[in-house]
Every structure is written in C-alpha cells, then in structure tokens.
C-alpha cells in the first residue's frame, strides 16, 4: 500500500492507496513521458547523434535519460529553501518529503544541484554539458563504441573550448564539470534502486 511517490516528475507525491501498482505506474508514466520525449528531441539536435546507429541511439538514451533529466531539472530543487517543486508547480519541503520516505537520493540530488548551480553556467554551456552526459562511450550495450567515442571526444573538446572562451580565468570549471559525470552515474544507480523498489513493492 504505497502512499507516496517522491519523484518531482510527478504531479504530486501523494498516491491513492486504492489504486493498483499498475495504475499508479501508468499515471506516473504519463507524467514523465513528455520530459523523456524532450530528452529525445534534445538528443536529435546534437550534431552527429543521428549518424549513430539506431541501436546505439536507443542504448545511449536508455542509459542516460535520467542523468539528462537531473541536469535539466536542477531548477526544481531550491537549495536555499530546501524545497522540491513537482510538475503541478507545488513545492514540498525536504522534511515533508523525508517523512514520505525520501532518503539518500534526495540528499544527493540537493548536493549535486548545489554544486552544479555554483558553477553559474550559461544556457549554452549547460546544453553542451548535457550532450556530453548523454554521449558516453562506456554505456553498456553499445554496438559501435568507436563512433560514440569519437562523438564524445568532439563534444568534450567543444565544451572545453566554450568554457575556456567564456571563463578564461576559471578553467577549473571544465574539470569540475567532468567530475560531475561520476556523480551523475552514482545518482543514476541510486535511482535505479528506487525503481526496483517500486517494481517489487509498488
């Protein structure tokens, strides 16, 4: 009898206990589907992404969509107020979400958001960083690793060039950004565990 689903890609964290696990998932899926479609549209606009094989496009998106969403939706996490805004626009405090069962993942999301926002990236920089997050040659199941690696290197070079141009005295920003990649992997793993818990105990 799950009572809460503490993901901001949802209209509300409250779940009707009368509903079945399947219908809860169906509703949740309808909430986050538009955001996933936006990630796919974003991927299509990355120069070179459409030249990858269909299999590898799907593999990269399957593995990286959550990480892209984390970067795109850092604005939902208000670090100062310690609140999370859900899709309905309503804000919930960390304490409230914690009382609903949110744990380490929520804390880690705030940590990540705080560090990323501290870099004060422009929209263009954020967009290029997001492309680097998505095009990672070490994702599992890729059939043409070399092609993905070549595109990844091109994107990383472009990101370094843009950061160097925009922040000539702060090249450490580029290093800090690359160090966000393992942080995102860690968040992705924690999120997968939550999904597993949802599947086993909807």
């Amino acid at each position: 009898n799950r009572m809460h689903l503490v993901c901001p890609m949802n209209t509300s964290p409250y779940v009707d206990p009368q509903k079945s696990g399947h219908s809860i998932w169906e509703e949740f899926s309808m909430s986050f589907t538009p955001a996933v479609r936006e990630v796919v549209e974003f991927a299509k606009r990355i120069p070179g992404f459409k030249d990858l094989s269909q299999h590898d496009q799907v593999s990269l998106l399957k593995a990286g969509t959550f990480e892209v969403l984390v970067v795109r939706f850092t604005s939902l996490f208000n670090v100062k107020e310690r609140t999370v805004t859900f899709l309905s626009g309503r804000k919930y405090s960390v304490e409230a979400l914690r009382s609903m069962g949110a744990g380490d993942l929520l804390n880690s999301m705030f940590d990540f958001t705080e560090k990323l926002q501290a870099l004060n990236l422009s929209e263009e920089e954020m967009s290029l960083f997001t492309a680097v997050v998505l095009v990672s040659a070490d994702r599992s199941g890729l059939e043409n690793v070399n092609s993905v690696e070549a595109l990844q290197e091109t994107l990383i070079r472009a990101l370094r060039s843009l950061i160097t141009k925009n922040h000539p005295n702060e090249i450490a920003i580029f290093t800090k950004l690359l160090l966000k990649l393992p942080d995102l992997r860690s968040l992705n793993n924690m999120h997968s565990e939550q999904l597993l818990a949802f599947k086993v105990h909807p």
Binding site: W25, S29, T33, V36, R37, V40, E41, K44, K50, Q54, Q57, V58, L61, K62, A63, T65, S140, S192, L195, L196, K199
Partner: peptide, 27 residues
Amino acid sequence: FSDPASNLGLEDIIRKALMGNMEEKQE
C-alpha cells in the same frame, strides 16, 4: 536489475520518440 529502462517502459517511449528520426534515416 541491470536494465530498469526496459523493464519500466522507458525504452518504448524512447523508441517511439525516435521513430521519426529513424524513418528519415531509413529513407
């Protein structure tokens, strides 16, 4: 649980969203 995306329907959403792109490529 190595593939949550497939198990929870994400792959289906991704494939459908990519479809236009894939059809273009096949042409």
